[in-house]
Nucleic acid binder design. Structure first.
Lengths: 242, 242
DNA sequence: CGGAAAGTTGACTTGATTCAACACTGGTGG
DNA sequence: CCACCAGTGTTGAATCAAGTCAACTTTCCG
């Protein structure tokens, strides 16, 4: 408040979501007013974490909600068998820190070096109850994440590994499109194991699926963390053929 | 407002969700004030629909959000192949009507005869922006649905049909517990096909999984829509062994 | 440059799907 | 009252895709 312009010059948290209504369709991103961003910055602290850093574990006391500024985070659950089920990848403008009865419901870990905003839940609650407009942005964001979660559930219902991977690549490409240039190059910051856990496949199946997509001339893996889409239509066809 | 007490005597919409914080842990249900219920009733109308009635289709213009009063609703997506992927079953105190850019993202259909509250999205938006406390209840509810969706995603990641069905029965039982008596009898209002589409299995696999659970003496199917849990511990063991 | 982690490939196994036949149920009409 | 019929659910046999195990290659990072 005493430094109003800092909201524009210092990195401030923001949220990305597709809106409920058609009227706001021009943008995919929730635009927070600089006052709102300033308010969020006041109840939160900036955090930089190295890759692989565990941010919190399932069941740990939940006192914070996090907004991703830079980098990629994964949210997962450890299963009794020792396997892990990935619930979501989180990118800039995403929110995480889902709690239930005061405890986190997932584990989260940095995939790449990340920059986060850590917001105190109790302070955020107060703020949201005071500022209904800001709360509405959060409501839109959580709704967006619900849609994404459902989309993933539909995705992993598929039987064919190649189709799942195709959908995944499209998902990552769509995210990139939303952010910036419509490029054919899609970065995959996560490991094959992470992709496998996200798609509900074995590591080897992901590898074989990648081979098949490559064999059909749909994509080219420049390196393990960068795919180039060669035939967008062909890829879309496989991805859609559920 | 002119009939304040009607909120208690006439059926009014309510929401059920596990809260974020431990402090409110005593109850699973969001308690709306009678004023809030009255406000919701004023922007909505009561709706009674027969079983099988399609409530809305994917892509249709989204102008309403629905609260379930009685009965069961299913939310699903029609896939290009003609299959359908069930996203969720909705029970009393649940909310549905997820929209994206002004269109619904799923189809919804009544599984049993249902009683719904239909709330105008535009009016609800105005109301939520005026009443931050009420909006917070909606935020909690959507968050709850996000958790449920993630839980289901973990569920269908499993390989074994029997385990999935066991989890499903526990899910339905937990819902019942929350509502009322801790009974061993769990009603399954939906068809086997619906269960199959929800679990990501074929109809036959559900049938065989049921046979296996029955064979192990864990459950007894009194009839296709009513399971009795005979060995809760054994069922839990299979359900947990992911 | 070396060692460890990550990714790929191959051979075999397993479990769900598919296709097809059959059983059960509740409602209708002769 | 019973026979029929359609919708729903069950069971069986063959197939096929993904999992597993194991060997190998590539990439990454100190």
């Amino acid at each position: 408040m005493n430094r109003v312009d800092t909201a524009d010059t210092r990195p401030a948290p923001s949220l990305g979501a597709v809106p409920f209504l058609k009227t706001a369709a021009e943008t995919d991103t929730i635009v927070l007013t600089s006052r709102q961003r300033e308010q969020l910055m006041q109840i939160g602290i900036r955090l930089r974490l190295p890759a692989r850093k565990v941010i919190y574990r399932e069941g740990a006391p939940a006192d914070s909600v996090f907004a991703v500024m830079e980098g990629t985070v994964k949210s997962y659950r450890e299963l009794p068998s020792g396997k892990r089920a990935l619930c979501a990848f989180l990118f800039p403008r995403d929110l995480f820190g889902l709690a239930e009865r005061g405890g986190y419901v997932n584990c989260t870990q940095a995939v790449t070096p990340v920059s986060l905003y850590r917001l105190s839940i109790s302070q955020l609650t107060l703020l949201l109850k005071r500022d209904a407009e800001l709360q509405f942005q959060f409501l839109a964001k959580v709704t967006h994440e619900l849609r994404e979660s459902q989309r993933r559930a539909v995705l992993i219902n598929r039987r064919d590994a190649a189709g799942r991977l195709a959908m995944f690549i499209e998902l990552m490409a769509a995210r990139r499109d939303r952010l910036a240039v419509r490029q054919r190059e899609v970065p995959l910051p996560m490991s094959r194991t992470d992709i496998a856990d996200y798609l509900g496949l074995s590591l080897e199946s992901v590898s074989r699926a990648a081979k098949e997509l490559r064999g059909r001339g749909l994509v080219k893996f420049e390196n393990p963390h960068l795919v180039r889409i060669l035939d967008a239509a062909g890829l879309a066809e496989i991805a859609a053929a559920v």
